[in-house]
């Protein structure tokens, strides 16, 4: 009983299933049960990664994709953040802008792809515009929601204790809205990678998505699978960074305190 409970407590328990799957996959590939045109062996993917890293191609595509993602994030994120704050703080701005933004929000941003290609061809603007658009609404909505749902009792306290507008914003409204803003950022980052995958697959001449499309032309399944793993890794990296940010910025909140 105690021995059984002992190994069940091991920190390696969560790794059993993924490692098991990898072993099964590798066995199926080496025995020929899984043809490499369908799915290459894990070792083949690792080999492709090593080769593409060695000749600099992977790094090049990775750098291009990351630059697009970050540019879209900065452009879309900053505009949506400012508009979210504005509509949250000013009833006039809310009446002026929010109904329009809510209307535009119903357009799936990927539906714009044909139009965007028509405008910009396969240039950088097309991808950045789509990424920025995709990031816009999660951050706008959550910033706005965070600002309007700050505890009015705390705002009243701030006023009674003599805080002026800027101080009220800096010390009460912004920190109060921050948990919600960070949720928006996490959602936005998820949409950012998704948008980039679609845009790079359809309309690009570089980037991870382009690398995968090229590989499809030559049935290089190892490179396609590699591209999928690279995207997954980038998504995970972005998510981990935001979570680290949450732990740091929201450490006052018992719900976010590191266990």
């Amino acid at each position: 009983m105690t021995r059984a409970a002992g190994w069940k407590e091991s920190p390696l328990v969560p790794a059993i299933v993924p490692v098991g799957l990898l072993v099964v996959w590798q066995l199926a590939s080496t025995t020929g049960l899984l043809p490499s045109q369908i799915l290459p062996a894990p070792t083949a993917v690792v080999k492709a990664a090593a080769e593409l890293t060695a000749d600099g191609e992977l790094i090049h595509h990775l750098a291009v994709s990351t630059a697009r993602a970050l540019t879209g994030l900065v452009v879309g994120g900053s505009i949506s953040f400012v508009l979210g704050l504005l509509c949250g703080l000013s009833p006039f701005a809310r009446r002026l802008l929010d109904p329009t933004l809510q209307m535009v929000r119903t357009i799936p941003h990927l539906a714009l792809l044909p139009l965007v290609i028509l405008w910009f061809g396969i240039g950088e603007q097309a991808k950045i515009l789509l990424v920025a658009w995709g990031i816009f609404f999660p951050i706008y909505l959550n910033t706005y929601h965070g600002v309007v749902s700050v505890d009015p009792q705390l705002i009243e306290m701030g006023r009674v204790y003599g805080m002026k507008r800027w101080e009220l914003f800096r010390r009460i409204i912004f920190p109060g809205a921050l948990p919600s803003i960070l949720v928006g950022l996490r959602f936005g980052l998820g949409i950012m990678w998704l948008t980039l995958i679609v845009a790079e697959t359809i309309a690009a001449s570089s980037g991870i998505g382009y690398m995968a499309t090229q590989a499809r032309e030559f049935s290089q399944t190892d490179i396609i699978v590699l591209a999928i793993f690279v995207y997954a890794g980038l998504g995970k990296l972005a998510d981990s960074l935001t979570r680290a940010l949450e732990h740091r910025l929201l450490r006052w909140n018992p719900a976010y305190a590191r266990a």
Partner: peptide
């Protein structure tokens, strides 16, 4: 009536 402390401070 409530303490109204800033939870992040």
């Amino acid at each position: 009536q409530e303490p109204r402390l800033l939870p992040w401070a």
